[in-house]
Simulated assay, not measured.
Amino acid sequence: MAAPLTLPVSIDEAKSTARKAAVARRTGQDPGLGIRLIGHLLEGGILPRGAVVAGFWPIQHEIDIRPLLAALHERGHPLGLPVTGRRGEALVFRAWKPGEPLLPGRFGTSHPAGEELTPDVLLIPLLAFDGQGHRLGYGGGFYDRTLAALPDAIRVGCAFADQELDSVPVGSYDQRLHAVVTEAGLRHFP
């Protein structure tokens, strides 16, 4: 009997399948666990003193990093939030302080109207990550373009521990993380 025919799967198909599984894993998680990120990140030795930190406003069941952003602000870190532009463009970051109003953005995001800034550290949302520092995003490529444009910035994924997969499908343009912070701790990647 002949071996079954196996058709190659494109990276796009593999990512689409992984995204569906990752969304299912994240749904039902408690966004309030984001408060645990504060101690892990602030005590993890990854943040340079006074570094400009770009965060994100959580959407779609993402871990809530707003308490972390408030703690970073209290420690004197200038903060920024991303503005999502047109497809094919990198993100732009605008200055923000806790309590300042936000404007509605694309894809259900919110962003400030502050001046543009360049982050030293990026706190990055994701659907999944693996033990090699690869991340699976939503598929627009905004963060990959942004990370390519900011090669010296420290890249920290923010997620629930259950969002870790054995392996994330990776394309040639995908950018790796330096670390991931979850409610369980901070993990550095080589």
Rank of each mutant, 00 (worst) to 15 (best):
M1S: 08
T6C: 07
S10D: 09
A14T: 02
A14P: 08
S16F: 04
A18G: 01
R19E: 07
A21K: 09
V23M: 11
Q29A: 15
G32Y: 00
L33R: 15
G39W: 01
I46N: 01
L47Y: 00
P48N: 07
V52R: 04
F56K: 12
F56N: 10
P58C: 07
D64I: 15
R66Q: 13
L69I: 08
A70I: 11
A71N: 01
H73I: 11
E74D: 12
R75T: 07
L81P: 11
V83W: 13
V83N: 07
G88L: 14
G88N: 09
E89F: 04
V92I: 08
A95H: 08
W96M: 02
P98V: 07
G99N: 14
E100D: 13
L103A: 11
G108V: 00
G108P: 08
S110M: 07
S110T: 10
H111M: 05
H111G: 01
A113S: 12
A113D: 13
E116W: 05
P119M: 08
I124S: 04
P125N: 11
P125Q: 10
L127T: 05
A128R: 03
F129G: 14
F129I: 15
Y138K: 09
G139R: 13
G139F: 11
G140S: 10
G141F: 10
T146Q: 03
T146K: 01
L147V: 14
A149K: 00
A149D: 05
L150P: 01
I154M: 07
R155Y: 02
A159R: 09
A161D: 12
G171T: 15
S172P: 12
S172G: 05
H178F: 02
T182K: 10
E183N: 13
A184W: 01
A184G: 08
A184P: 15
H188W: 09
F189Q: 15
P190Y: 00
